[in-house]
Simulated scan of single mutants.
Amino acid sequence: MDIAQTTAPEIAPTGQATALLLTGRLLRPQSLTLDALRAFPSVTCAPFDLRCYTTQRFIRSVEPYRGVRLTDLIEHAGLRCEVHGEFKRMIFLAIGHDGYAVPFTWHELFNTSVGAQAIVVYECGGKPLTEADGAPVLFSGADLVPAPRHVKRLARIDVRAMTI
């Protein structure tokens, strides 16, 4: 993935359509527009074939995606830890507008190659995606099969701490 150098935005201005909420155990919960997502440093993934996880049938070829790393969004919002080492028990639940949800763990995102390839997408094939196109899209490029954690119309990332 290539990194473009830009600065991280602040929370979306009032009056603009919110594309993504970051909620839960955060120091600074976020309400971001597609334009705000585009202001973060960007990464690009290679084209890939999207296949159904259950049937393994081909769904479609996907041109290169451009977006922001999920880890960059989380770091920008800051994790709220109430006890020492609590961040290691955090999960990040990505929830689509249709209720489809997929989890990531802190270790997976910040301690493996998955974090470098989990992106919130706002562009495909060099063209901006709109909400009608399914933006923003969550894509986990390190997964063996990309379809299970490919979330169109991503609505929210909810941060939770697992209890023991």
Rank of each mutant, 00 (worst) to 15 (best):
L73V: 01
D49K: 10
T6P: 00
Y100H: 08
F87E: 12
R89A: 13
G115Y: 05
L93E: 07
D72C: 03
D158L: 10
E123T: 04
G24I: 03
I11P: 06
I3G: 08
T71Q: 03
L138Q: 07
T71D: 04
L27V: 11
F48P: 05
I95K: 06
A118L: 03
P13I: 01
E108M: 10
V151Q: 01
Y122V: 10
Y122P: 01
R89S: 14
T23F: 04
L138A: 08
L70M: 09
R160Q: 11
I91G: 02
Y53S: 15
E131V: 15
R89N: 15
H84G: 10
P64T: 10
L26P: 00
L21N: 11
F58I: 02
Y122E: 08
I11R: 11
E123H: 03
R60F: 00
H76D: 06
T44F: 06
A39Y: 00
G141I: 02
A116N: 13
I119L: 13
K88E: 14
E82P: 00
G134Y: 12
H76G: 02
S113Q: 13
G141D: 02
A147F: 11
L154I: 09
L138Y: 09
I164W: 06
A94Y: 02
D72L: 02
T55L: 04
V120K: 00
A36N: 09
V43G: 05
C52G: 10
G78E: 00
D98I: 09
P148Y: 05
A155G: 14
V145Y: 07
F92V: 01
E108K: 07
S61M: 08
T33F: 03
A36T: 05
F58A: 05
L129D: 04
C124T: 14
V121L: 05
D2F: 13
G15Q: 07
I74C: 02
P146C: 05
A147N: 14
P103L: 09
F40S: 00
Q56V: 11
D2C: 08
A155M: 12
K127V: 15
V43H: 10
A19S: 11
